[in-house]
């Protein structure tokens, strides 16, 4: 995806050289928005909590530290769960799997979807061949189908990642195809065709760099979607199995006692919401900057 300049002549820096890579400058400009900074802080905070959490957790996930559904105490800061295990520790351990699944499925889905969208948008002949089957996939209710497969094949991490990615593919492909259609009609693509560059070169060198920023935004959206769906899977019992822990599972196991011990429900919800809001602020700011950059006339 990189578009590093191939020529680095020893030329003295021109007035132009501060512009550098346009996509990089979009990100840099985006960080001037306070909302983008807040988003970044939120996302990083949740990531740090999830990935460093296990090293700092006061207890293991299976250790019994008190009676079930105990309120917060000095030993269990967020109280205990339905079996008397420490909620905070289970929360700190339970983020890795859900974030890992969401991020992996988002990358996989955006990667495959973008590749299909690029090909479909650039090659009218096989456009239908690619897009119509994807619409069929989109026609199915994602969650129901994922539940069906996990019930059939067992709740395996790789299966969940694959299924969530599969349901990410159609919409990513559609967005990519639309942008590709636009870019492919520009003259610089025709110029590359005239010179005789192969299709692979045109797609990855000419088109892709021009749609990489919106794809980045799409990646963010897909991560949030992945979080929601993996949490939902755990919640319905088709994700990770006890005694392992994850934020969706925590919700499910403890929702019966919400009135007396709300922490095992509130804490993971807050984390998931924080993460989703962070990703949204971040990507929204980036796309807004992008629109602004696009509107600016060339000097």
């Amino acid at each position: 995806m990189s578009a590093t300049p191939t020529s680095m002549t020893s030329a003295a820096p021109t007035a132009a050289s501060e512009g550098r890579r346009p996509s990089a400058s979009v990100l840099r400009r985006a960080f001037r928005f306070p909302t983008v900074r807040v988003g970044l802080v939120l996302v990083l905070a949740v990531f740090l909590f999830a990935f460093l959490g296990p090293y700092f957790a006061p207890h293991t996930t299976t250790e019994f530290v008190g009676r079930p559904f105990q309120g917060p105490s000095s030993d269990a800061l967020l109280g205990t769960d339905q079996l008397g295990r420490d909620v905070l520790s289970r929360l700190m351990w339970g983020g890795r799997s859900i974030l890992w699944m969401a991020v992996a499925s988002a990358f996989l889905g955006v990667g495959v979807g973008a590749a299909l969208g690029l090909i479909a948008g650039y090659t009218p002949k096989i456009d239908n061949l690619i897009m119509r089957p994807l619409e069929v996939i989109q026609g199915f209710p994602a969650l129901v189908l994922i539940l069906l497969f996990t019930a059939l094949l067992g709740p395996k991490v790789w299966l969940i990642i694959l299924l969530v990615a599969l349901f990410n593919v159609p919409s990513v492909a559609r967005v990519t195809r639309g942008m590709t259609l636009d870019i492919a009609s520009r003259d610089f693509v025709a110029a590359a065709q005239v010179i005789g560059f192969p299709r692979r070169h045109i797609l990855y060198r000419e088109v892709l760099p021009n749609i990489s920023t919106p794809l980045f935004v799409e990646l963010g959206l897909r991560i949030t979607y992945g979080i929601a769906i993996t949490a939902a899977l755990s919640f319905t019992g088709n994700g990770l199995q006890p005694p392992s822990t994850d934020w969706g599972l925590l919700l499910n196991e403890n929702r019966t006692a919400m009135a007396i011990q709300p922490w095992p429900v509130i804490a993971p919800s807050v984390l998931i919401a924080t993460f989703a809001i962070g990703v949204t602020l971040l990507t929204e700011g980036v796309s807004r900057t992008m629109a602004r950059v696009d509107r600016e006339p060339g000097t």
């Binding site: 020529s7 030329a11 820096p13 132009a16 050289s17 512009g19 000097t299």
Partner: peptide
């Protein structure tokens, strides 16, 4: 100028 090679289309006039 040869230094133009390091710039991007957005930096240049029509």
């Amino acid at each position: 100028p040869a230094a133009t090679l390091d710039s991007y289309p957005g930096d240049l006039s029509g």
